[in-house]
C-alpha cells in the first residue's frame, strides 16, 4: 500500500448565517479521510452535500473551523497565507467553471505563467519555455499563448486551467467538477487528458463530481457524502457493485441507464423528498427521514463511519455485501 499524501482528520467547516435565520451551518461536518499517493479519490454527492467546500478546505482556499489537514506530513490547517505558499505549489486545484476561472483580460500564456511568476521559478525565458511545454502537453500549439480566453471553447478553457494547475509541478490536484460544464464528447477528451497526465507525472487526484458515471470511471476509491458527512467510502468497484449504505444504493439506482445495458441489474429505489437543508439537519442519522430501512435507533443515534476490510460505512443497518467475482474485480 502506498503512503498517505493528504489526510483530513475530523474536518469541520462552519458558516455563519445572518439575518432572519441567524445561526450556523455546518457545510462539512467531521470529515476524515486519507488520500494515497498516486491514487484517484472520487468524492460524490448531491448539491449542497459539502463536497466542494470540503475540496476547498483540502486546498485551504477556505479556512477550516476545526480539524486538521496533513499534506506530505505537515499540518496545513492552521498555516498563514505566507506559510501556505510553498504548499500551494504542490497542491493545486482545477475549477468547475472554465468561463469564470480564467481572467478574461489576460492572455493564455500569462494565465499559465502566473503561478510560476508568483513563485519565481525561473527567469523569463525559462518560464516562457515551460508555458510552451505545458500548452503542448494539454494539446495546444505553443503559438496559442498570445490568445485570450474568449477565443477558446469550454473544453479548451478547461485544458488551459489544467495547464495552469500543472505549472508548478504539483503532487496533488483537487479537481472540483472539472467536466460537468462540458458536453459529453469534450468531457471525454478532458477525462482522457487527466488520465494521461496522471500516468506521466504520477499525480494524485481528488476528483469531486456529482456525476456518478464519471466518478466511477476515474476513481480508485470513492467517498459518498451526504449533508456534510461521509456516509460510505470504498474501492470504486466494490462500492458500485455492492453499496453498503442505503443512500449510495439509491444514488446508484437513480443513474439513467443506457438501453439494454442495465448491468448489474439494480433494484430501483426512488427516494422521496429532497435533501434537507444543512441548517436543520435531522437528528441521529442524517439520512433517516428518506431512508427505506430507518428504525428507531436511526432517529436518535448518529452512526459512526465504521471501517472493515477497506470499506467504511456509517449506517446502523448496512446492506449485505456481495462478494465480487474475480471477473468483476478485474474490470
Amino acid at each position: 500500500m502506498s503512503e498517505t499524501i493528504l489526510r483530513a482528520d475530523d474536518v469541520v467547516k462552519q458558516f455563519a448565517l445572518r439575518g432572519r435565520h441567524r445561526g450556523t451551518i455546518k457545510a462539512v461536518d467531521g470529515v476524515s479521510l486519507e488520500v494515497k499517493a498516486g491514487e484517484t479519490l472520487g468524492i460524490v454527492g448531491e448539491s449542497g452535500c459539502g463536497k466542494s467546500t470540503f475540496g476547498q478546505c483540502l486546498t485551504r482556499l477556505v479556512d477550516v473551523t476545526s480539524g486538521t489537514i496533513q499534506f506530505e506530513g505537515t499540518d496545513i490547517s492552521k498555516l498563514s497565507r505566507r506559510q501556505l505558499r510553498p504548499v500551494r505549489s504542490r497542491l493545486q486545484m482545477v475549477f468547475q467553471d472554465p468561463y469564470s476561472s480564467l481572467n478574461p483580460r489576460m492572455r493564455v500564456g500569462d494565465i499559465v505563467a502566473e503561478p510560476m511568476r508568483i513563485h519565481k521559478t525561473g527567469d523569463r525565458r525559462a518560464i516562457q519555455a515551460r508555458v510552451a511545454d505545458l500548452l503542448e502537453r494539454v494539446g495546444f500549439d505553443a503559438s496559442m499563448a498570445g490568445r485570450f480566453p474568449h477565443e477558446f471553447s469550454g473544453g479548451q478553457r478547461q485544458r488551459i486551467g489544467i495547464a495552469r494547475a500543472l505549472a508548478l509541478n504539483p503532487s496533488v490536484l483537487v479537481a472540483d467538477e472539472p467536466v460537468s460544464a462540458l458536453d459529453v464528447s469534450v468531457q471525454a477528451q478532458v477525462l482522457n487528458l487527466l488520465a494521461d497526465l496522471q500516468d506521466e507525472f504520477g499525480l494524485t487526484y481528488v476528483f469531486i463530481a456529482h456525476d456518478l458515471g464519471v466518478v466511477e470511471h476515474v476513481s480508485d476509491r470513492v467517498a459518498v457524502m451526504y449533508l456534510g458527512e461521509i456516509v460510505e467510502l470504498a474501492d470504486a468497484e466494490e462500492l458500485y457493485a455492492s453499496p453498503a449504505h442505503h443512500y449510495t444504493a439509491a444514488l446508484l439506482s437513480a443513474i439513467p441507464q443506457l438501453d439494454g445495458e442495465a448491468e448489474p441489474e439494480r433494484e430501483r429505489i426512488v427516494l422521496t423528498g429532497d435533501v434537507p437543508s444543512p441548517a436543520n439537519k435531522p437528528s441521529g442519522c442524517p439520512f433517516h427521514p428518506r431512508c427505506p430501512a430507518a428504525t428507531e435507533i436511526c432517529r436518535t443515534e448518529h452512526p459512526v463511519l465504521h471501517e472493515e476490510g477497506g470499506r467504511a460505512v456509517a449506517c446502523h443497518h448496512p446492506l449485505p455485501l456481495r462478494v465480487l467475482s474475480s471477473a468483476e474485480r478485474g474490470a
Partner: peptide
C-alpha cells in the same frame, strides 16, 4: 458512435474513452 463511446460505462473503469476529435 462517438457520442455513445464518450459516455463512461460501468465496468470500464480506467479505460480510455472514445472521443470525437476536434470541436463542433
Amino acid at each position: 458512435w462517438g457520442l455513445l463511446g464518450a459516455i463512461p460505462r460501468p465496468g470500464q473503469r480506467g479505460q480510455r474513452l472514445a472521443t470525437i476529435p476536434g470541436l463542433p
